[in-house]
Design a binder for these strands. Structure first.
Lengths: 151, 151
DNA sequence: ATTTTAAAAGATATTAAGGTCTTAATATAT
DNA sequence: ATATATTAAGACCTTAATATCTTTTAAAAT
């Protein structure tokens, strides 16, 4: 048996989603959040999350400014991004395209044994990640009904 | 971006599921299937699938006999196993227990931001793997409506 | 009993994911 | 202008998953 099985998202992607939600909550154009704070707020290793933030920044999902009082922040446009946008940036679109059995040839006309059943599940999965935007999380989390931290 | 993202099942587990379906179809107490044939029938590397078959055998999901005319086969009891049983044997029960965001502390009382939405999806996912038994696949595949091969 | 065949077991190799550290670039404050 | 703080980039390390190869064990056929 294997140690850890990735369900849905890679570890990088999990960190990315948590970091984005964290920054969405705390930041503004004036108030930027540094890597150290993000690492603490999301229980992620500092240098590793730094790499991930770079990716997200390069892909224009978040803004960054170097130097004193620098850090990461989101503008109102960034807040419109959904979990799906983060997943696509970090893990690619395999969640949209891949057969759950890993069959490259699997399709509507050449379906694997669970193709049609999984199709429905996948639809709901995609709905879930697409309709949850960072702006909505900001609201949800402010209400105190949800949690991000792991300890 | 990462090369390959595991959705749901590890590669080993994908091979295991395919191999079990393959043997379910072809084998009987008298007619055993060897590793080479399984590897060909599922597009899996021979030595790798051999390891996986060992695991499945050790966990009593399949029967094996050594020596001339030896190989793997299933009895009627083995055919009652579901995909879920295979997944649990190879990947463990993380699909049942883990938070989709990877949060160890996530629970009904301390939910992550997508906890309740994912709960429904997870329920359907579990239903899918639990209600599909090897015996049912045997029927389905015999009807020629589904495929396993990848090329 | 001996030989043959095939799985079981174990050792080793490769690749990808995850994680750390060092240096460079750059924005800001002084 | 200079010093400082902070992200960006790149090199490197570690671990787990995936894959391969070799040796051992055991069943069956002769």
């Amino acid at each position: 048996m294997h140690q850890r099985n990735v369900i849905m998202f890679s570890k990088s992607c999990e960190y990315a989603i948590k970091a984005m939600i964290f920054v969405a909550q705390k930041s503004s154009e004036e108030q930027r959040i540094g890597v150290k704070e993000i690492a603490k707020g999301t229980d992620a290793p500092e240098h590793f999350i730094a790499k991930i933030m770079q990716d997200l920044s390069r892909r224009k999902l978040i803004h960054s400014i170097k130097g004193p009082n620098g850090g990461f922040y989101m503008d109102s446009h960034d807040l419109k991004n959904s979990i799906a946008d983060i997943v696509k940036a970090i893990d690619g679109d395999s969640i949209y395209t891949d057969c759950v059995m890993g069959l490259k040839a699997c399709s509507e006309k050449n379906p694997c044994p669970v193709h049609f059943e999984y199709k429905e599940i996948k639809k709901n999965l995609i709905k879930m990640i697409e309709h949850n935007t960072l702006a909505e999380f900001k609201e949800k989390l402010e209400s105190g009904k949800f949690f991000l931290k792991n300890k």
